[in-house]
C-alpha cells in the first residue's frame, strides 16, 4: 500500500512537465578578437553575476577576469599576445554555491584574426553613413563580420537552449531501474546468507 503510493508519487514526479535540472552550463566561443561566454543552469535560468575566468590552457596564465551580466553573458576582448600565441583557452565559470563549469575554446576559433586591432571595428559604429566605396577592404570585412555576428546571436542562443534541457524520461526511468535492481541484488545476497545460516544449524 505504502510502496504503491510512493511509486505512484514517483511516476508523477518523473512525468512532471516542468521537471528540470540543476547542472551548470557554460558555453564559450570566439567572436573575432572578443571572447564571448554564456553561463546558466540547465533549467534555463541564467547564471547572472557568475565569475568568469579565461586562462591560457597551455601555460595556465590568467588572461581575463570578469562577471557575467544579468542574462549570464560575458564578453571581453582578448589581449593581442594571447591571440598571437595561438593557444587554446580554458574558460571557467563560477556561479557561486559550489556551481562551477569549465570549457575549452580551441585556438582555431581565433585563427585568421589579426592580433592588432583593426581600426574598422571602432569606426563600424559611427561609419554607417559612409559610402561603401569609401571603405577599405579590411573595414568592410569587419563590418560584415559584426553584422553577421549580431544576426546569429539569437539563433545561437536558441540552439544552446535546446541542447541543454534536463535529462530525458528514459534516463530517469533507467536510474530508478538501477536502484531497484541493486535492492534486488541485496535481497538475494541477504536471502542466501540467511539460508546458509539456518542450514548450518
Amino acid at each position: 500500500m505504502l510502496t504503491r503510493a510512493l511509486l505512484a508519487a514517483l511516476l508523477v514526479l518523473a512525468c512532471a512537465p516542468d521537471a528540470s535540472a540543476h547542472k551548470v552550463l557554460l558555453n564559450a566561443w570566439g567572436e573575432g578578437r572578443t571572447l564571448a561566454a554564456e553561463i546558466g543552469f540547465s533549467d534555463g535560468s541564467p547564471g547572472a553575476g557568475a565569475k568568469i575566468t579565461v586562462a591560457d590552457a597551455a601555460t595556465g596564465e590568467t588572461l581575463l577576469r570578469g562577471v557575467a551580466d544579468g542574462a549570464g553573458f560575458f564578453e571581453a576582448e582578448l589581449p593581442g599576445e594571447a591571440l598571437e600565441r595561438g593557444h587554446d583557452l580554458r574558460v571557467v565559470g563560477n556561479a557561486g554555491a559550489g556551481h562551477r563549469a569549465e570549457t575549452l575554446v580551441p585556438a582555431s576559433e581565433f585563427a585568421g584574426v589579426a592580433p592588432a586591432a583593426p581600426a574598422a571595428v571602432a569606426s563600424a559604429d559611427g561609419g554607417g553613413a559612409a559610402a561603401p566605396t569609401g571603405l577599405a577592404p579590411g573595414e568592410l570585412e569587419a563590418l560584415v563580420r559584426a553584422a553577421v555576428r549580431e544576426e546569429l546571436r539569437p539563433l545561437r542562443r536558441e540552439l544552446e537552449a535546446q541542447g541543454g534541457g534536463g535529462p530525458e524520461l528514459g534516463t530517469v526511468l533507467g536510474g530508478i531501474g538501477y536502484i531497484f535492481g541493486l535492492a534486488g541484488v541485496a535481497a538475494l545476497a541477504d536471502n542466501r546468507r540467511r539460508r546458509k545460516a539456518s542450514g548450518g544449524r
Partner: peptide, 11 residues
Amino acid sequence: SSAFFVGSLVH
C-alpha cells in the same frame, strides 16, 4: 532512494 534520485529534477 528512487524518490531522492528523481526529486532533484523537481525545480
